[in-house]
């Protein structure tokens, strides 16, 4: 399958651009031939299994690692040669909690504020960000005494403290309860609306739905970059129509449906004897004709709809396909 990792924005609008970016740790490949363009004011989701190279990509884009080959540009500059001004525009939340365990919540925020040279309105900004991540009232708690979820929230507050233009969030919602996770994504949407660009890695495939674009990583390689909708379509091979019948289908009826729809065996799947899933290019176009055919052949349809597959299923399909060498 051809992989188009370039989103449809013009090059000048891109805040991040890489070309065959490769990072090797001795002989081990971290990221290989990553070519990607990410437009401004978007949420770019980076999905992949553990060890697929997501964090390495983030570090390459932050300039923490120099590339082995290829190039990357963020704000039009190579990350490992960022100026202080470039770094001031970037926020970073690492995958693991990397603040000081011995310091309190407030002291950790003050520490990050000092790293970004924030002198004015420091207290006000810290208070605001702690409020955002619901850590108000925990200011005097030492980081080591916080729960895992609270530590993630503290890391997020620290990453957003200086109101960066481009925000790298490495698995920001890991270990956070669903309610707060949802709040986080709402806030990410707000940040995007305010003109920020977010580069978010996640293992929660379902979170791809919140992104404007999703990149799928596996074994250091970028499989594709797509909108969530297209990702589903590509992952599942098309759109899925699910039809529930009043009676059990016979094998001959199954064969007749396949012939009528001009579909291959893999695209028609009988889930139970009364439920059929059909993968088509365009569900809106094919569903009426399928229903008409059923009526003509006196097959009573109890229910018919376009099925929205879960991103988990899509992701699994994509990874399986990649491993099968498709």
């Amino acid at each position: 399958m051809a992989i188009d990792s370039r989103v449809t924005e013009t090059k000048t609008d891109c805040i991040i651009e890489t070309e065959q970016l490769t990072k090797k740790f001795n002989a081990e490949i971290g990221v290989e031939d990553l070519t990607i363009q990410i437009p401004r004011q978007t949420i770019f989701g980076f999905i992949g299994p553990s060890g697929s190279g997501k964090t390495t990509t983030v570090r390459l884009l932050l300039g923490i690692h120099p590339p082995t080959s290829g190039y990357a540009q963020v704000f039009g500059h190579q990350p490992h040669r960022f100026s202080q001004h470039d770094r001031e525009k970037i926020g970073y939340m690492p995958q693991l909690f990397m603040l000081q365990n011995g310091l309190t919540v407030w002291q950790n925020m003050a520490f990050v504020a000092s790293l970004y040279g924030m002198m004015r309105h420091r207290r006000q900004r810290i208070r605001k960000k702690l409020e955002l991540v619901e850590l108000t009232g925990h200011e005097k708690k030492r980081a080591v005494d916080l729960s895992g979820g609270m530590q993630r929230r503290l890391s997020l507050a620290a990453a957003l403290l200086h109101d960066p233009e481009l925000i790298f969030l490495d698995e920001p919602t890991a270990g956070i309860d669903p309610v707060l996770r949802r709040k986080f994504w709402d806030h990410f949407q707000d940040l995007k609306e305010q003109g920020n660009t977010l580069f978010i890695t996640t293992q929660y495939v379902s979170e791809a739905a919140y992104c404007d674009y999703v990149g799928v990583m596996s074994e250091g390689r970028l499989l594709m970059v797509e909108t969530p909708e297209n990702l589903k379509r590509i992952g599942m091979g098309g759109e899925i129509i699910e039809i529930k019948f009043a009676d059990l289908l016979t094998p001959s009826q199954m064969e007749a449906i396949r012939e009528q729809a001009d579909l291959s065996a893999g695209q028609v799947q009988l889930m139970e004897r009364q439920t059929l899933q059909v993968i088509v290019d365009d569900a809106a176009q094919r569903l009426p004709s399928l229903l008409g055919w059923c009526q003509e052949n006196k097959i009573t349809v109890k229910e018919a709809q376009k099925l929205e597959p879960s991103f988990d299923d899509v992701f699994v399909k994509l990874i399986e396909r990649q491993r099968d060498g498709a």
Binding site: L62, G63, I64, Y92, L96, M98, Q100, N101, L115, F168
Partner: peptide
């Protein structure tokens, strides 16, 4: 080893400023 240095590396603070601090 705690990773705090990674935050420093991503921040605008350079080696001189960190050391002076």
């Amino acid at each position: 080893f705690s990773g705090t240095m990674e935050i420093m590396r991503a921040s605008p603070a350079n080696a001189f400023e960190i050391l002076i601090g």
